[in-house]
Amino acid sequence: MDKSEALQKVNAIFIDVLDDEDLVLDYTTSADDVEDWDSLNHIQLVVAVEKAFKIRFTSQEIQSWNNVGEMLDCILSKGA
């Protein structure tokens, strides 16, 4: 899977979790850009991504992300 494919998959997860059919993520999107990406939804998003890609994150990893692109880099670094 390349980064573009991972972005599409993560975008679908965000649409489902945040109930926003119009949501379009790009590599620079951050929580500040998405109205409903708050601390509680962040938990749901991370759990959903872990399940979808069959990976586990550490708390240090998720705290290091500044945007969706960095999340994707982390996902891909785990061989997803």
Binding site: I43, V46, V47, R56, T58, S59, E61, I62
Partner: peptide, 11 residues
């Protein structure tokens, strides 16, 4: 059934 250490979520 599931523990996500990263975000401290338990199912």
């Amino acid at each position: 059934t599931n523990v996500s250490e990263a975000v401290k979520a338990v199912e």
